[in-house]
Nucleic acid binder design. Sequence first.
DNA 1: ATAGCGGCCTGAAGGC
DNA 2: TGCCTTCAGGCCGCTA
Length: 299
Amino acid sequence: MPELPEVETVREGLERLLKGERIDDIAVYHPRAVQRSEGDVAGLAVFGGRTVEAVVRRGKFLWFEMEGIALNFHLGMSGQLLVSEPGAPAPDHPHLRARIMFKDGSVLRFLDQRTFGYLQRSSLTEVSDGRPAGQGTESPFIPVPVAHIARDVLDPWVEVGDIARRTRRRRTEIKRAMLDQTLASGMGNIYCDEALYRAKINPRRKTNGLSYQRIEALWHHSKDVLREALEQGGTTFDALYVNVNGASGYFSRSLQAYGQGGKPCGRCGATMTRIQFMNRSSTFCPICQPFSGGSSSRL
DNA sequence: ATAGCGGCCTGAAGGC
DNA sequence: TGCCTTCAGGCCGCTA
């Protein structure tokens, strides 16, 4: 499951290996790998001869700036981007969805078991605040399909106070708000559970029933969780193999809430509760993260 | 406009 | 042993 830290690791690898290179050709092996792409599969031909000017990320979206247009990627649930340097093999694979061949002989392969991921040709549009559109660029231009996605919590231009104020205006459950990519992007189920655990907030608490201070603290915890995961996960990938690996070190060593249902809480020893929530699971400590009032209303 | 929910997809894991 | 069901979850698009 590539989450924001994994996508940023991939971005850094692609930037290091492919920035400045020119695309020769793109081959597509599965129709679902190209979704909502301008000109459909045939439209990808315009990338031939164009240079990768920047490799940019906002939330879990990743794109190449290519001389006025974007080649935009989303890895979905199971996507991988693998770079083979010139002369190295780039073999077929049962889940191979596309190959991007570069003039220098490099090959970028897109693999995706569950085909939730895709690549697409997109026009660029200017972001309203005029600031750099994402990690990896100074340009304020963003692919049209990404324009509605908010800045992510690791974005240097984002202000936690601003996210907190907009969160508090919502009238919904706090975890729903955290997963809403138009409020702040990049928070998946795993990192939401971890941040809520650290902030001692029940996932079903209402946004308007929490103080500004607690919501602000929650977003600071969110930022910390993502930064720590990035620091740990970013060291496990070598230069030749830009990988996305759900079993990164962070997952096995550091998770305190996600996947811990039935196990004792690391703080108080109570049994961690797992509930169904938004067609997925949500795990929390019933003592540290109570649903109603009590100690949870204080910091 | 906004909130909330269903659908997309396949391999692993568990039950019988 | 083997078949069937359940689960994982980000994002889009539909509905109210």
